[in-house]
Structures are given as structure tokens and as C-alpha cells.
Amino acid sequence: MAYTIDRYPCEDAPRLGAMTLHPVAESVPRARRWFRKLITPYYPACSVDDCLLMLSELITNAVVHGKSDEPWVVRVEWFREGTSLRVEVHNPGLPGSVRLRHPDADDAHGRGLLLVDSIAHSWHAGPSHLGGTAVSFEMADAWPS
């Protein structure tokens, strides 16, 4: 199965784009490249590099923690809502397993959501409209009002 990119959303819809990716590590750099390419024409005022860092963390978590007995994918969608940018990452994992951790200095993992929490205006985890889990972040004032 190939990955898919939605380059041409409906003109008046809040969704700016979407990607469907294989749940493999190689999807992280692919998503970064495509997100940068697809968000740049919208001229966001927020740091695209910060968004790419958070996107990388959320996709990595989705790949590592997504679980299903059937073949599955990671779905990424991003939206303009007023002056804010919201990015969602969907996987078939359990919403209750998403939590902010406070790892010890010598722990090798567990810092992804800490990065998101420190950079984003807000973030949320809960049930996905696609089934499974959605984890999202919001960048306030991504566009002038």
C-alpha cells in the first residue's frame, strides 16, 4: 500500500491538508518533508520548524504505540481555525495510554509530549473520529487575524 497526500483540500474547508502513512520509522522524515512543502504556501507566521519537531514526535509515538490486529496506517491532518493551526495525528492505539511523562535524566524515551507541551499553545489526546487515538497540537496566532 502506498502512502497518500491530500494536496488540494476544498477551498472553503478548514482542513489544509492530510497524509496517510505506513506505521514505520521512515514515515517520520517523509511526513516532515511533505508537511513543510504543503504548509509553506499558506505562509504561517508560526515556526514551521517547531511544527515539524512536534509532528515528528507525534508520528513517532503513533508508530511506536499504535496497535491493531489488522493492517493500519497513521493519518495526519492539519487545519486552519481562525488564526490557529491545528495538527492531528491518528492511530489505532488506545486513547487512555497517551499521557505526559516526566522521565529521569537517564531515561532514553518519554520526552515527546514534553516537547509538544513546551512548544505548542495547547495539545490534546482523545478518541479519533477514525477510531483509535488522535493526538493534536495547536499553534495560536499562526496567521494574522
Rank of each mutant, 00 (worst) to 15 (best):
A2T: 12
T4E: 14
T4H: 13
T4C: 05
D6W: 06
R7C: 08
A13E: 12
P14M: 08
G17P: 03
A18Q: 13
T20S: 14
P23D: 07
V24D: 12
E26C: 04
V28C: 05
A31E: 01
I39P: 01
T40W: 03
P41I: 05
A45Q: 15
C46H: 10
S47L: 05
V48P: 03
D49C: 04
D50V: 03
L53Q: 11
M54P: 03
L55A: 05
S56Q: 09
S56N: 10
I59K: 04
I59H: 04
T60V: 06
N61R: 02
V63K: 07
V63L: 08
H65C: 04
G66Q: 02
S68P: 04
W72H: 10
V73D: 13
V74Q: 06
R75E: 11
V76C: 12
F79G: 00
R80K: 15
T83H: 12
S84W: 01
L85K: 01
R86T: 14
V87G: 02
E88Q: 12
V89W: 03
H90L: 05
G93S: 13
G93H: 08
G93T: 01
L94H: 14
H102L: 06
P103C: 11
P103Y: 12
D104C: 09
D106F: 11
D107S: 14
H109T: 14
H109C: 11
G110C: 08
G110F: 10
R111H: 09
R111A: 06
L115F: 14
L115H: 09
S118N: 13
S118L: 10
I119W: 02
I119Y: 06
H121G: 14
S122W: 06
S122L: 04
W123S: 03
G131Q: 11
V135E: 04
S136A: 15
E138I: 14
A142I: 01
P144I: 09
S145M: 08
